[in-house]
Computed example of a mutant assay.
Amino acid sequence: MKKEECFYLGKIVSKFSFRGEVLAKLDTDEPQLYKDLESVFIAHGNDLVPFFIEKARLHKSDLLRLKIEDVNSEEDADRLMRSELYLPLAFLPKLDGNKFYFHEIVGFQMIDESFGRVGVIKGVNDTTAQALFEVERDGKEILIPMNDEFIKEVNRKKKEVVVATPEGLIDLYLQ
């Protein structure tokens, strides 16, 4: 399995018991969706290695306590510390309406209600205080704040995201 075929689930952050249990911090608003996992991919360098889970349960609401098959001691668990966890994209719950996963809108056209066709969404920058659509238009990058008030429609059939940005925002990038 390749990382491009998976999504980042979280990271193993600490040991829990002398029997090799670990705690994983999940990158999700709904950790309860993952309490019945049967397996997970753990990043090992550039590779993803499958591991089977004997038992998983929520711990203090936002951590997942995992007992991974063949991880039976503190030493075994030490080797997994700070490892990233991944699951196949097919495990993501389907979203509808104007909700979307960042990876799913890459390649969509961005249409502004006033400006018209803005360009192609190349990615999402979520390292800033507010996530930004990265849109390419004629070799130029246009950054559009990912604001619920701006997003008017996500049309999966047409592969379009329709927005209503403040007047002049897009023009700033084109001058």
Rank of each mutant, 00 (worst) to 15 (best):
M1C: 09
M1S: 13
M1Q: 10
K2H: 13
K3T: 15
K3D: 09
E4P: 00
E4N: 06
L9S: 12
G10V: 00
G10C: 01
V13I: 14
K15I: 01
S17L: 04
G20E: 05
G20I: 02
E21Q: 05
E21S: 00
A24N: 01
L26S: 10
D27V: 01
T28E: 02
T28H: 02
T28R: 01
E30I: 12
P31E: 01
L33F: 13
Y34S: 04
K35E: 15
V40C: 08
F41D: 06
F41Q: 05
I42C: 07
I42T: 13
H44Q: 08
G45K: 09
L48V: 14
V49D: 12
P50Q: 10
F52Y: 15
I53C: 10
I53K: 11
E54C: 00
K55N: 10
R57D: 08
L58P: 11
K60A: 14
D62V: 06
L66P: 04
L66N: 03
K67S: 07
E74V: 05
E74I: 04
E75D: 13
A77W: 12
D78M: 04
R79W: 03
L80H: 03
L80R: 06
M81Y: 13
R82F: 15
S83K: 13
S83D: 04
S83N: 05
L85I: 11
Y86C: 02
L87I: 09
P88Q: 07
L89G: 09
L92W: 09
P93A: 00
P93M: 00
K94Y: 10
K94P: 05
G97R: 07
N98F: 07
N98D: 13
K99D: 14
F100P: 01
Y101F: 10
Y101E: 03
Y101A: 04
F102K: 04
H103M: 10
E104I: 14
I105Y: 05
I105H: 06
F108K: 12
F108S: 09
Q109P: 00
Q109G: 03
Q109Y: 11
M110C: 08
D112S: 05
D112R: 03
E113N: 09
E113A: 05
S114M: 04
F115E: 07
F115K: 01
F115Q: 03
G116V: 02
R117C: 01
R117M: 07
R117T: 15
R117N: 13
V118D: 12
V118R: 10
K122W: 11
G123N: 12
G123V: 14
G123H: 14
V124G: 10
N125V: 09
D126Q: 09
D126A: 13
Q130C: 03
Q130S: 12
A131P: 02
A131T: 12
F133H: 15
E134I: 14
V135G: 04
D138P: 00
G139H: 05
G139C: 08
I142G: 10
I142A: 08
I142C: 07
L143V: 10
L143F: 15
L143I: 11
I144F: 09
I144Q: 03
P145M: 02
M146C: 13
D148F: 03
E149S: 11
E149G: 06
F150S: 09
F150D: 07
K152S: 08
N155T: 01
R156I: 08
R156P: 00
E160C: 00
V162D: 08
V162N: 06
V163H: 11
V163N: 05
G168Y: 12
L169T: 13
I170K: 06
D171T: 05
L172E: 11
Y173A: 11
L174H: 06
L174K: 03
Q175R: 08
